[in-house]
Amino acid sequence: MSWFSNYARSSVGAKHIMAVTGLALALFVFVHMLGNFAVYAGQDAMNGYAETLKSTGAFLWLARLGLLATVVIHIAAAVRLSVLNKAARPEKYRMFKPIRSSFHARVMPWTGLIVFAFIVYHLMHFTLGTFYYDYYSAVQELPGGATRHDVYSMVVQGFQIPAVALSYVVAMVLLCFHLAHGMTSFFQSLGLNHPKYNAIIRYAGPVYAAIILIGNSSIPIAILAGAVDLPGA
């Protein structure tokens, strides 16, 4: 396997790994967003969706471990490459004018790190219940006396706090900037280019990022605006 470690450590191979893991994360973000839209279908739909996910047991843990590994690999490669890139220009220019690159593309490591901090916060909020435990521990009573985790009320009550809703929207804006570059960039990293498709590829990132931004931010905004509310409210 020494060939693989040589490949993974090379400049081009490391980019391939960033591209593949970044793409996997971006696709997860999309599917996750589609799942979250269940909130618009009301308490039963949302809690049913959550219950179904939980009931997959081993499969759920496999998916979680896979995602964790993907994030760790993406970040490890990103940090390593960023450090190498800084070292490749020890003395800075006194005057330098970038002309073709956009600002958000040059700050990928920073938007990435902030998004990572957000992921930790998000997991503590909704998956672990580290804070707002009262909301987290809500249960829905089902006809027949059974109960299940009331994810719907947890989310609604969470986002009724303006600072929490705002923090999610800000995180989505940063993720949007990360994806606006990333989802175009991965084509080039993997060598997937063709004169016929290059014009479309250029817009793939910004369009994908806009879909994620609008889709995900709509949830805290709808809740804050009262369009989505607690059952019976």
Binding site: S10, S11, A105
Partner: peptide, 21 residues
């Protein structure tokens, strides 16, 4: 050639295309 490029201490592309410009 890529390995020689890496060994020489050049950085890694982040697809900014300032080179092209």
């Amino acid at each position: 050639m890529v390995n020689a490029m890496d060994a020489a201490g050049f950085g890694n592309c982040t697809n900014l295309y300032e080179c092209e410009a």
